[in-house]
């Protein structure tokens, strides 16, 4: 009897690449002091974690990211709901939204610094702007996908427009909204770090730039590894929450497939 394979080939590849990293650095294949072995990077990571420096920096970055995500996501849902229920507002504000959307977000950091300074307010705003658009687009798509019968059902029971919006439209659109939020989440981490790198003295982004100036390669890579792990954990955590929040959606999907 064969034992079932525990690790998928993808995990094996990751382990292989990490081993290649260690070996290539030890044997100095790159011929540069800026390619430290993985073991040194992990040691630096452990040191920075145990000293409390990295957790504090990462905590700050995550907190600003979460605040921006909450603000931008909420705004995206509310504006989407408004656009969908009052078409006049979509006609009025739609072009403005479409003009702001394509601006590369890092480009708005310098002007925002002038108004909001270098710290939390600016960074949260930048993340919120980033998170806003995917959620807005998906909210509108989700609302458009709500069946006319479902809404008529609410009307026949004498349920008013506000309650219909909150108890029928919003839950029905939630799978779409969450898909948008997941895109926003990935972008939010990126943008939070970029904003920290551009301005101010906060968070993992600023730490990365400092370590680069100091030429401390192991610390740079430690921060990169920490960010990779954070991003991965955030996405996995979000997927788990999504599975719980819209279990019915996945159940319906399975039914449709099988």
């Amino acid at each position: 009897m064969r034992r079932p394979v525990r690790f998928s080939s993808g995990v094996v590849l990751v382990a292989g690449l990490l081993a290649l990293w260690e070996v290539s650095a030890r044997l100095d294949w790159m011929q540069t002091p800026n390619w430290p072995p993985l073991s040194q990077v992990l040691a630096a990571l452990a040191r920075d974690i145990l000293s409390g420096e990295l957790p504090e920096l990462a905590g700050g970055t995550l907190l600003r990211m979460a605040a921006g995500l909450a603000a931008g996501g909420t705004a995206g849902v509310m504006v989407g709901l408004l656009f969908a229920t009052l078409p006049l507002t979509a006609r009025l504000f739609g072009p403005t939204v479409e003009l702001i959307r394509p601006i590369p977000i890092p480009a708005v950091v310098p002007p925002l610094v002038l108004f909001l300074g270098l710290d939390d307010a600016m960074k949260v705003t930048v993340v919120a702007l980033t998170a806003f658009f995917p959620v807005l687009t998906n909210t509108m798509q989700g609302i458009a996908a709500v069946e006319a019968e479902t809404l008529a059902m609410g009307r026949t029971f004498g349920i008013g427009p506000l309650r219909r919006a909150l108890r029928i439209t919003l839950p029905a659109a939630l799978p779409y909204i969450l898909a948008g939020l997941r895109v926003s989440l990935a972008l939010a981490l990126v943008v939070a770090v970029v904003a920290e790198m551009i301005a101010g003295e906060q968070g993992l982004g600023h730490y990365l730039v400092m370590m680069q100036f100091a030429g401390r390669a192991p610390e740079i890579y430690a921060a990169v590894v920490a960010l990779a792990l954070l991003g991965y954990a955030l996405n996995r955590g979000f997927l788990a929450l999504e599975r719980r929040a819209i279990h019915w959606w996945f159940a319906l999907g399975r039914q449709a497939e099988g």
Binding site: E147, T150, I168, A172, L174, W248
Partner: peptide
Amino acid sequence: QYTRSLLPW
């Protein structure tokens, strides 16, 4: 269409 008038959540 009961599938559309019932709320799956």
